[in-house]
């Protein structure tokens, strides 16, 4: 891993990590690549920040919560099924 200053992602490892960050977060990369990425993250603050904000983005999507279903829709569905079920 080359030394570089933070950075406009000119470094090859930064660009490669940038392209595969989601797979890394989703545990979809093999072990050796994960270890390589973790080594890079220890050296590169910019990539670390990038990964943290991406990870938080995913967490916000997962935790944003669900809206309740409108009672009018539930009623509409029940009526629809009753109509469909009529012989």
């Amino acid at each position: 891993m080359s030394e570089h200053t933070p950075h406009n992602h000119p470094d090859f490892r930064c660009r490669e990590l940038f392209a595969r960050m989601s797979e890394y977060l989703d545990n979809e990369l093999d072990g050796s690549l994960c270890r390589e990425i973790e080594g890079h993250l220890n050296e590169c603050q910019a990539c670390k920040v990038c990964l943290s904000t991406l990870k938080r983005t995913v967490a916000l999507c997962r935790e944003a919560g669900a809206a309740p279903i409108p009672e009018t829709l539930s009623r509409r569905l029940r009526e629809l099924i009753a109509t469909l079920a009529k012989p």
């Binding site: 200053t5 933070p6 950075h7 406009n8 992602h9 603050q45 910019a46 920040v49």
Partner: peptide
């Protein structure tokens, strides 16, 4: 991709 160094956050 961040386009310049100012677009990259330090913390």
């Amino acid at each position: 991709l961040p386009t310049d160094e100012t677009a990259v956050e330090g913390d």
